[in-house]
């Protein structure tokens, strides 16, 4: 993203600002926000139970907001293009990619990151299982893997099919777990242990 960050000429900027003055003038309603290119906009979102009332540039991704502004660096930036899954977080309980999510669109949503899974000093069962089964080597993909796996078990319980379960009519076979976790790449290749960790949590219920 940085290569294109300053991809705006002075002429563009002046033109846009002048146009914005007439287009956006005063018409900011609470329910249906409107902001110009030179503006920041109000955004309230809850991350790991803490509410944040923010003034955001619309181009800030949820990932960059968390890492650069809120110092929540547990969520990792891998590819920054939706190809690796390292930035996976939960939005209202659903797993999404924070690198392709503009933070402003999450106004009113509840975000859960790896920092929000433990409770009362007790690791989440999925975190414990990754440690127990050695589900990582370098650890860079791990927070995304764990967030993804937590949401995945919820999806299975709610009846979400996968490309594998649709045909085999069976969920949580090794093949099904791999398919459901295919959005999270691990370049160390810890996949067998990741599958084992997820299976152990599922079996414990």
């Amino acid at each position: 993203m940085s290569a294109h960050e300053d991809d705006i000429t002075r002429r563009d900027f002046v033109g846009v600002t002048v146009a914005a003055a007439s287009l956006y003038g005063g018409a900011v309603a609470e329910a249906a926000p409107v902001s110009g290119p030179a503006d920041t906009a109000n955004c309230s979102l809850t991350i790991n139970g803490h509410r944040h009332d923010l003034q955001l540039e619309p181009r800030v991704t949820l990932l960059d907001l968390m890492r650069e502004q809120l110092h929540l660096t547990g969520t990792k930036k891998g590819c920054d293009h939706g190809q690796c899954g390292a930035c996976t977080v939960l939005s209202d309980g659903n797993r999404v990619l924070s690198c392709l999510t503009l933070a402003i669109t999450q106004d009113g949503r509840h975000i859960t990151t790896i920092e929000g899974l433990a409770s009362g000093g007790q690791l989440h069962p999925m975190q414990e299982a990754f440690i127990e089964h050695d589900g990582f080597q370098c650890g860079f993909c791990t927070s995304g893997q764990i967030c993804s796996a937590v949401a995945m078990l919820k999806e299975v319980r709610s009846g979400m099919p996968s490309a594998v379960s649709l045909n085999t009519k069976q969920t949580m076979t090794d093949e099904d777990i791999r398919e459901r976790m295919s959005g999270n790449l691990c370049r160390c290749g810890a996949y067998p242990n990741i599958v084992a960790a997820i299976r152990s949590v599922e079996q414990r219920g």
Binding site: E5, A31, P33, V34, S35, P37, D39, P58, R59
Partner: peptide, 10 residues
Amino acid sequence: MRRFGYSRPD
């Protein structure tokens, strides 16, 4: 990324 305006109509 180029700057842009944003609106969220209902």
